[in-house]
Design a protein around this nucleic acid. Structure first.
Lengths: 205, 205, 205, 205
DNA sequence: CATGAATGAGGGTTCATTCAT
DNA sequence: AATGAATGAACCCTCATTCAT
């Protein structure tokens, strides 16, 4: 039969595609959308420039896709953390821990989402807004639940969620700027949890 | 506008310089550093492109300078707000109000600082880091004072300040995304104040 | 289609080769040499791109070969038409009819030769010149014969042949631009024949 | 006053613009739209590549504009030739002479129109079709006039005009392919005139 | 001081061609 | 024979920057 049966070939193709996306991820996270060139990406992936265009239609599409995928990844991780617990005092640290884990082990994810793609392509701005919105909604859900049960003080949970989302992001960014982020992760986890529970005034047990 | 009120640039004869900086401010805030071209700036300022290079050495330097000045402006406004009051329950709303005023009346300032210049020029990254640091410090100072007086619960005020800085930024950005930001300013002021005071657990009077 | 009827290419097993030449014919006629890509050709022929380079050394060679073969096809058809009759008043309509038939049933042939490959590849320019020369010669031969027999007015038959060749081409192109070329074919045949016989001033019976 | 008064500057700019268009004309005529690169043009004009884009929006626009302008030039010259005389036997040589003059002294004009821009950009195809149509119409007008006066044999003047337009083009192209076109211009003029008058069968005295 | 014509490095993208499978 | 992933030269175009006027 001519050529490899599509199975192994497909697999190899996917491997390379993934490798290129990781390279692109890294480059975009480091330099941001504009400063990163396609040539940077292919150099990092150690392929020719034509290869890039064999796998992706263009720079913008790849970036948007990468951003979307990355956002999904982060959002899902946090959401799962939150959903794995039942009460706010447990949910908050679980969610923050999930966020922390990604910040520590996949810092590019956080960098890409928070600083990599700003002030850029229109199609990205929408993407970015959608990410912020989803992030806020994720943090808001447990608040609403707690509020329903009268476990936290009456408040505009939307505003609270916005504030928390911004708070966590900023702290993560500061953590990543530290020489040894991992060393301070526990302190951050504790402080953010306390901060949050105080801010919403959890009145349970 | 920040640079207008700056002594350095207010000398008459610098009309063109001022016009270009105002234009640059607007353009950079709208499009971000990369998408904004020098031609955009001079067109908006209604001068020739050569004039730009008479007043500024290059695009990057202008941006960094603009960023710095804008940061000073915002930081000083918030700082003044905070210093105009003596107790935390009064300081917080004063600081937030100052921030809010700028967000409402000079949205470009906020946009430039928070989203306009990210992801690139090395010299800017340092600038940006410095701005974040100063912002955090400004919010931290009253916290430390209150902590010293035993008016708030023991806490890592650095982390709290980071969280608050991020929280305020995010809420401001969300406010600016509203159709009529001014209409919601009061609610934001109240919610952010309450959020903050709860978060630090102010135990005074 | 020209290459189908060619002995050289009719061997069985060359199905793919034939398919690619047909596809190339169509694509080149539609888009011209430059705008047509090798990928267009292989896509139309439903083969892989590597297959193209198994059968043809490169794009240019294929085009030149196609052009040559197509030219042979058209030239031979017209020539046969002309040779099938003995007197000019019969030869002209026979030749024009042959040309017309091709224009109607294989418009790609005409398009390829007249507009498909102009303005470039050096090797093609020579090819194209050769085609024009042969076309002119074909139209000139019956004129020379008639002149020898004193059946037409004394004239520079070379110039007349050039003029006729150009005249026929232009009329064919205009015909193909019509919504229903076939409907007007008879009128064209009659008008071109009359035009020609008047132009050479046939003085026979 | 700052900078030159726009007068001389404008003039110089126009000069350069014209020089670049001539260079472009030459390059496009020689290589055709696709094979000609913007770099070819700027090299021929001895300017930097950025200069090209200072004067023209892009390659395609320049080409279309050049084609249009060139078509106008040729068409007008022929039309004026035809209109400068009253009777067909004088009009035809006048029109052909005008065409001949351009072919001899501005061969690039003829090459650009007849072979330079084929099989190309969609926007050009329309342009080209318009040119052919206008050319045919120009040749048709005197025929219609003569027909009205019964000076030529009844005929479909549209077809005749198409044929003549094609005939002249082909003869011009062949003339330009000669080593010394000017030497044969008179013969061409005479032969084309005779050819035409015979073809329409002019029956005036 | 001011102008804007001129420059050219560099970016995104295309596409003919090669070659391991 | 046949495939299609991989290559990279070359294209069009943008834009920060310079400099003669």
């Amino acid at each position: 039969m001519p050529y490899q049966s599509s199975d192994r070939t497909r697999q190899k193709k996917d491997t390379k595609r993934t490798a290129m996306m990781q390279a692109a991820m890294k480059v975009f996270a480091e330099k941001g959308y504009y400063a990163a060139t396609v040539r940077d990406v292919v150099t990092a992936a150690d392929v020719a420039i034509g290869t890039f265009y064999f796998y992706f239609p263009d720079k913008e599409t790849l970036f948007v896709y990468l951003y979307e995928e990355t956002a999904d990844f982060l959002l899902q991780a946090i959401d799962q953390g939150l959903r794995s617990r039942r009460t706010l005092p447990q949910q908050i640290p679980a969610g923050v821990q999930a966020y922390l884990n990604i910040a520590l082990f996949e810092p590019a994810v956080v960098q890409l989402l928070l600083v990599g793609g700003v002030g850029a392509v229109p199609s990205l701005n929408a993407q970015r807004a959608a990410f912020r919105e989803r992030l806020i909604n994720i943090w808001q859900r447990p608040l609403d639940a707690a509020l329903d049960q009268g476990l936290i003080v009456p408040q505009n949970t939307r505003h609270t969620a916005e504030a928390l989302a911004g708070a966590y992001d900023e702290v993560m960014l500061n953590l990543l700027a530290q020489p040894d982020p991992a060393a301070e992760a526990n302190a951050v986890l504790r402080d953010l949890t306390d901060f949050t529970l105080r801010a919403v005034v959890y009145t349970g047990n």
